[in-house]
């Protein structure tokens, strides 16, 4: 069986609460989230973002991720034909579980950011044995 043909996903712009003073566009990275083995994993697609330009924070149960595009690469380039726009990325999620802040891990490869959020000890399910 041949694998399915890959579709283009249109970039979605961030819904802003306040308007920025500079009207540059910011996009919402496509995400996968899964849970297993005492950790939550968030995978975000941020093409064009270098690992040194990623900012991850967890505050008051909100995971916020920002990725800055390495825009210097486009210097001296004149667009002649375009199908997509470029820009920085931003997305946040409210976490339902308590996260062990000290153990958050992140990895970046081929424009994909993988964040591992280990659940805090008290948030892990405990098996209660009946005696």
């Amino acid at each position: 069986m041949s694998p399915q043909e890959l579709q283009v996903q249109q970039k979605r712009e961030v819904d802003k609460k306040q308007e920025g003073t500079v009207p540059a566009r910011t996009f919402v990275p496509t995400a996968d989230i899964f849970e297993g083995e005492g950790a939550l994993t968030v995978v975000l697609e941020m093409p064009g973002v270098d690992k040194n330009r990623v900012d991850i924070s967890v505050e008051d149960g909100i995971l916020s991720v920002e990725g800055q595009l390495d825009f210097s690469k486009y210097e001296g380039m004149q667009p002649v034909y375009t199908e997509y726009n470029i820009g920085n990325y931003r997305r946040s999620f409210s976490l339902s579980n308590k996260i062990d802040q000290g153990k958050i891990g992140a990895e970046m490869k081929d424009g994909i950011l993988t964040i591992t959020l280990p659940m805090a000890e008290e948030a892990k399910p405990r098996r209660i044995s009946i005696t």
């Binding site: 579709q7 004149q78 667009p79 002649v80 375009t82 199908e83 997509y84 726009n85 470029i86 820009g87």
Partner: peptide
């Protein structure tokens, strides 16, 4: 970003590139 947008309707490659909207999206620069 505006320069990129202003080229969205460019017919520079129309008819020569297999399907716009196909994956992967392409930008061409000079």
């Amino acid at each position: 970003q505006r320069a990129l947008e202003s080229r969205f309707d460019s017919d520079w490659l129309r008819g020569t590139t297999a399907g716009t909207g196909a994956f992967p999206p392409i930008n061409v620069f000079q």
